[in-house]
């Protein structure tokens, strides 16, 4: 019984982690991309990644679009979470459902629809258009995480602030938002990670100038398997780990503060 469990556990962990472990050393492979047994170590693919203007532009674009769309989604999500806070009733449930719907909508479908309206609004192949598109996809993440953070803010503490002379905007600014801040930042981080990884909507909405790292990787993977992909993948993993650690740290901080 115990042995079967152990073997099963190891197999599952191998299945889940194996791909990540395989992809890491490839970035430092001196040989070509597809040659798996490593032929020698080198940083040359990083040189390609950060030296090639196409890749460089795509990294910048990912940062710009990621930051701007996460900021937009966080702002809209935070406002709405504040408005919906502690409210019940059919309209509220419906609104919440619609706000979460972008999470479920297939990206291709949204891509087609957005391209249809962007043609009319003149937003096709613009940064603004791409940022808006990514923000739509990120809103469920920010809304959920800010809602959860607000739910843990004690109403009594806000009442205390009011009784001590703080008008409602001050209560919001000095008490509610600081207490919800870890949740807001978590939402932002999720949104950023989501934008970083977004390919499909970007294919529909971005012009050649708005090519993001993810889209660049997708094209390279599909069309010409440049070994710089492995370096890009490595960069991605490092970014993910940084984001993950930030997230865990925020959660930890929040728990400690509220304890």
């Amino acid at each position: 019984m115990g042995a079967i469990k152990t073997v099963w556990g190891i197999l599952c962990v191998l299945f889940l982690m194996g791909p990540l472990i395989v992809v890491l050393p490839i970035a430092f492979n001196a040989g070509g991309f597809v040659s798996f047994p490593i032929q020698g170590w080198s940083l040359r693919w990083f040189a390609v990644l950060f030296g090639d203007p196409g890749w460089r532009l795509s990294i910048w674009n990912s940062l710009i679009v990621g930051l701007a769309s996460s900021a937009l989604a966080t702002m809209l999500g935070t406002l709405a979470a504040l408005g919906l806070r502690g409210r019940v009733g059919v309209p509220v449930v419906l609104a919440r459902m619609v706000f979460l719907l972008p999470m479920a909508t297939p990206a291709v479908v949204l891509g087609v629809g957005m391209q249809l309206i962007y043609a009319r609004l003149g937003l096709g192949s613009t940064y603004a258009g791409l940022i808006i598109g990514h923000a739509v996809l990120s809103i469920p993440f920010t809304l959920l995480s800010v809602t959860a953070a607000l739910a843990s803010v004690d109403r009594g503490v806000e009442r205390a602030a009011a009784s001590l002379g703080a008008p409602p905007p001050t209560v919001l600014w000095l008490v509610t938002l600081p207490m919800a801040l870890p949740g807001i930042v978590t939402g932002f981080v999720f949104a950023f990670a989501n934008s970083l990884d977004e390919v499909v909507l970007t294919i529909f909405l971005a012009g050649p100038n708005q090519r993001t790292l993810a889209r660049q990787m997708f094209l390279q993977l599909r069309d010409n398997l440049s070994p710089a992909i492995a370096a890009a993948a490595f960069t991605f993993i490092i970014a993910t780990i940084c984001i993950g650690i930030t997230g865990l740290w925020l959660q930890h901080r929040r728990k400690r503060m509220m304890a």
């Binding site: 791909p19 970083l196 992909i229 993948a233 984001i243 993950g244």
Partner: peptide, 19 residues
Amino acid sequence: SVLLPMWTSVLVRCTAWLI
């Protein structure tokens, strides 16, 4: 081993599976 793959970009995982 559940969380790390989930957080990793789908593109990166595609790259890995390609290999």
